[in-house]
């Protein structure tokens, strides 16, 4: 380990390692955008792991600190796996189907960053939560 010679170096080091901490910070979680990827057997078999990793990679590349990426269980849309649900606080959740890694990145770039919902990938919600 090389010594740190100045406050600037220390700050650079902090920013580098901060990425590792972001996912752990659960404070204020109710005000963050929550992206959940369906990671049940069917989801994993259809490549949900690639999707979630691509999404996380994109989130950290774009330095989005207001986004939480989690996995969820099976939603019942096995025909449309991998599924990705985007919950922006105060808005209706949006459910996407057939999201591969490439599309996962697009969702971050377009929906999360610019607020453009990707209508073509939305699947019909067939249930209500009571």
């Amino acid at each position: 380990m090389a010594g740190i010679k100045s406050l600037e170096e220390l700050k650079a080091l902090r920013d580098k390692y901060k990425e590792n901490i972001i996912g752990r910070d659960t404070s204020d979680s109710e005000n963050k955008i929550r992206i959940s990827v369906g990671m049940a057997t069917c989801g994993i078999a259809s490549g949900a792991r690639d999707t979630i990793n691509a999404i996380i990679d994109e989130v950290s590349k774009e330095k989005l600190t207001n986004v939480v990426v989690v996995q969820s269980g099976c939603l019942g849309y096995c025909y449309a796996e991998p599924t990705v649900e985007v919950r922006v606080p105060g808005k209706e959740p949006v459910l996407y189907g057939n999201i591969n890694a490439e599309r996962g990145r697009e969702i971050i770039k377009k929906h999360i960053k610019n607020g453009e919902i990707q209508k073509d990938w939305i699947i019909e919600r067939t249930f209500k939560n009571i």
């Binding site: 406050l7 220390l10 080091l13 902090r14 390692y17 590792n20 901490i21």
Partner: peptide, 18 residues
Amino acid sequence: IYEYIAVDGYQALGKVLS
């Protein structure tokens, strides 16, 4: 120590010294 640095560790010392 890098975990501590990531949560603003030693920033207070840096601020005080500079």
